[in-house]
Computed example of a mutant assay.
Amino acid sequence: MLIDIYILALFLVIGSFLNVVAIRLLNKESIAFPPSHCPQCKHKLSVLDLVPVFSYLFLKGKCRYCQTKISPLYPFGELLTATSIFIVYKFVGLQLELIPALLLTILLVISVLTDIRKQLILDVVTLPMLGLLIISRLLIGSEPFWYYLLGGVVGFALLLLIAIVSRGGMGGGDVKLYAAIGVALGPWMTVMSLVLASFVGTIVGITLLVLGIVKRKQPIAFGPFIFIGTLLAYLFGYDIWIWYLNLLW
């Protein structure tokens, strides 16, 4: 129990760092310099200002120096990172497969954080992570290396086809992201990931439309649904597939 608490705390810190990565890359800034500061008053933040989640709650969502409201996306990113990495860690365990699993999870988290902010999935994140996933799958995996490369091709081709048919409804960032997802999952689970992401996205989109939160043809970030669909496919894909076959027959 204490080990799990320690690991969760560590993952919260990682989440805080991924927030910084997402924001600074979107703004085309260095992720190392300058040190963490309030974007409004530029005051350098102290350690007390940077405790993941708890600083946000303690400061009541405001900068301690200028009282500017802090975006709730900060604690959201920290909690998203901590919970998703922790679930993947507990599911996979301490084995080599944890390496590609964590690479995939970190890529998905950063993609969510950039997509919900500016509806962008950044090549500067996706392409290096794609390279790392290819290297990891060359050495780690229950299937032959070609299987994971085929997954990358399938993921890229499917999203490219959707992007062409939708005439810009799907961005180039999503296409490259799915190439990386394909390398991590292989072809079958990549297809399931897209089906699950589309299903969840449709349900959420219809709900938001009915509630009047969004309007018809208003673009919605697809990154969060890719995140959900991909993790579900990675963690429970075969169980979902067996359940579906049983449902049919």
Rank of each mutant, 00 (worst) to 15 (best):
A197G: 04
F33Q: 14
S166T: 14
L10V: 12
K42V: 05
I116G: 06
P35N: 09
L133Q: 04
D239G: 09
L8Y: 14
L127D: 02
G201V: 07
Q119T: 07
M1W: 13
L149E: 01
V109T: 06
L127A: 06
L132T: 02
Q67C: 11
I240H: 01
K90S: 13
A179F: 15
H43I: 03
I206P: 09
L59W: 03
L232N: 08
G223S: 06
L48H: 15
L103T: 07
L235A: 05
N246R: 06
L8V: 09
T105S: 12
S36T: 00
T105Q: 02
V51T: 09
L104F: 07
L185Y: 01
L59E: 09
I110W: 04
E78V: 03
G223I: 02
K69R: 10
N27H: 12
S30A: 12
T202E: 10
P52I: 00
L73M: 08
W243M: 06
Q95D: 13
A101S: 07
Y147L: 06
T105P: 02
L185D: 00
G169D: 08
D49F: 10
L96F: 13
L235I: 13
F227W: 13
I3P: 02
L245V: 02
K118A: 15
L248G: 12
L103A: 12
V183I: 14
G173T: 10
S46V: 04
A221W: 04
T230V: 07
V51E: 04
Q218C: 04
L149A: 00
F17R: 03
Q218E: 14
Y74A: 05
I220K: 13
F33P: 00
L12F: 14
L26V: 14
V195Y: 09
S46D: 15
L149Q: 03
L158G: 10
R24W: 13
G61V: 07
P187I: 04
I121N: 03
R216W: 12
D115S: 11
V195L: 10
I99W: 03
Y148R: 01
I226W: 10
D49G: 03
L150T: 11
F225R: 06
M192N: 08
C38V: 05
I5V: 14
V51H: 02
D49S: 02
I226C: 14
A32W: 10
A221M: 01
